[in-house]
Design a protein around this nucleic acid. Structure first.
Lengths: 287, 287
DNA sequence: GCGCATCCATAACCAACGGTTATATCAGCA
DNA sequence: TGCTGATATAACCGTTGGTTATGGATGCGC
């Protein structure tokens, strides 16, 4: 009986969340899809993995035997796949970035890294916000500059903490103010990150600072897209102070939102990845 | 990037056979299917696993990194799956059998086993000839009575060595003879085991004793089926001497074929499986 | 004890996948 | 030059994996 590794991820997620619904949300698939997949897996395995109880799932005895196996299989595969990919470009370190980092962090880091490990090259990889790990999760990058929060599968070191600002179309009624308390933005339509961005989406919608759910007017997977939509008047968006200068354009104004907790930019790496090159790069990054 | 475990088996088989065609034959799929699967896997992985050369395949550097990983993943899964299945029926040993063993081997073995391990139960599983390992390969049995030859993944101990006979319809021109040299059967149509039986099919067609390829009139996956077809005059079939008594029926005669090497009945188990219960059962089996 | 909320399963549908057979292509070799 | 042995492509088809919409069972609050 062969399974798809995806099915094993589904199984592990369901076991960890202990409800199908929660696991489906975490995996970004619909609840019926996950339900069907788990049923089909159990049918093909020939035994049940879960007892379905009114308040969620509990593992059967076979399920608890198979769970560590599934974890082991997935870990072995993820590690091996990353290794194989690295074999294509030996002595190359891939640095993932969610947005143009700017702030003169990345340039000196690369310089110091190359001085430390002269045989190595550094490749920069710019990814959309649909991958909040900037390629760390799927192994397409080795280290990454990311905005927090990020999955705890990755280790991080905070580099910069910046106040959050809001980007508005120039003709917006609030555009005249020098700064804008978040309270005034509660009912504004927002341009949000895609659902795949996970907790990061909520962070840039400032969900924690709201009494109710946000109004999402549109979704965008890259910075330019966001600002385009804001300029067009579709919605407004939060951004980090340091990015306000980077993304200036006519018809767009940025204003501080003083009462929101700051955004944190961090360097992140896979917790289990302790290669010298990764360590060397981390040492090269200075706040 | 998630793969199907089946794809990893395909990859390993192709790497071991070093041609797609040979691997496809070993896997019992068509050559284009395997070719497409390997191509698709490479496309999704983002790198090539093989260099295609006129005389077959060679591994790329990434391929050679991934090969041991694939083996490790498959081994971990196979082991874990078997463990989980065993968890459903703790203290139960599943004995696979290709045909009714008879010969009073299995009954005393089970008795001795139950005397040795009183807490255990033994479950007998009869499988068709489309699985020449009688369930050992897919973990649905723990030990098995099988006819040799069998894959070297399994350890075996020969129990009985018996001359091969031939089963003929009663009205067959050769049915009068007391014994029939194989030479006289060379051009006869045979009822064969299915292709999935692998080397065992060849053994019961006595391919080694032929100058050319056999004539296969039909395929059958169980003993009753074979004898039905023989009685109906569709073809003839070889069988072990000890089975001639077991399968007597009107319209069917069995005659020795003196010049064929004997058939060997063995007890087999997974080489890596050294559980006490397995060992105890093996000790209980006496030739 | 009766709605009600919560969670899982099923239905109906659709795109993508994995297999088949038949055929094209390509390198090496007599 | 044409044959052989290998892989890739084409056309086709049943199955799988996803979606949305809906049904059904089980605790819980009032």
């Amino acid at each position: 009986m062969d399974a798809h590794l995806r099915e094993l991820r589904y199984f592990v997620a369901a076991a960890e969340e202990s409800t199908v619904t929660a696991a489906a949300a975490r995996l970004f698939v619909s609840q019926p899809a996950l339900s069907k997949q788990l049923r089909a897996l159990e049918r093909r395995l020939g035994f049940d993995l879960f007892d379905r109880r009114p308040r969620g799932l509990t593992l059967t005895s076979q399920g608890s035997v198979l769970l560590p196996v599934a974890r082991e299989v997935l870990a072995a595969w993820d590690r091996g796949y990353a290794e194989a990919r690295a074999a294509a470009h030996p002595h190359q370190l891939v640095v993932g970035m969610q947005t143009a980092v700017g702030r003169d962090l990345q340039r000196p880091a690369v310089e110091r890294f190359r001085a430390t490990l002269p045989g190595w090259t550094v490749s920069l990889r710019l990814v959309g916000w649909d991958d909040p790990t900037a390629g760390l999760a799927d192994g397409t990058s080795d280290v990454a500059f990311v905005w927090l929060p990020i999955s705890t599968d990755f280790a991080t070191r905070v580099l910069i903490s910046e106040p959050r600002w809001v980007a508005l179309p120039a003709q917006h009624p609030l555009a005249d103010r020098a700064e804008i308390p978040f309270e005034l933005l509660l009912d504004e339509p927002f341009v949000a990150l895609p659902a795949a961005a996970g907790p990061l989406r909520d962070f840039w919608l400032a969900v924690d600072a709201r009494p109710g759910p946000p109004v999402v007017a549109a979704e965008a997977t890259a910075a330019d897209e966001v600002l385009e939509l804001v300029t067009a008047g579709v919605g407004i968006a939060l951004l980090a102070e340091g990015n306000t200068g980077l993304y200036q354009r006519p018809g767009l104004v940025c204003r501080p939102v003083p009462d929101l907790p700051p955004a944190e930019l961090a360097v992140a790496w896979r917790r289990i990845d302790n290669r010298d090159a990764v360590r060397a790069f981390l040492d090269s990054v200075q706040p």
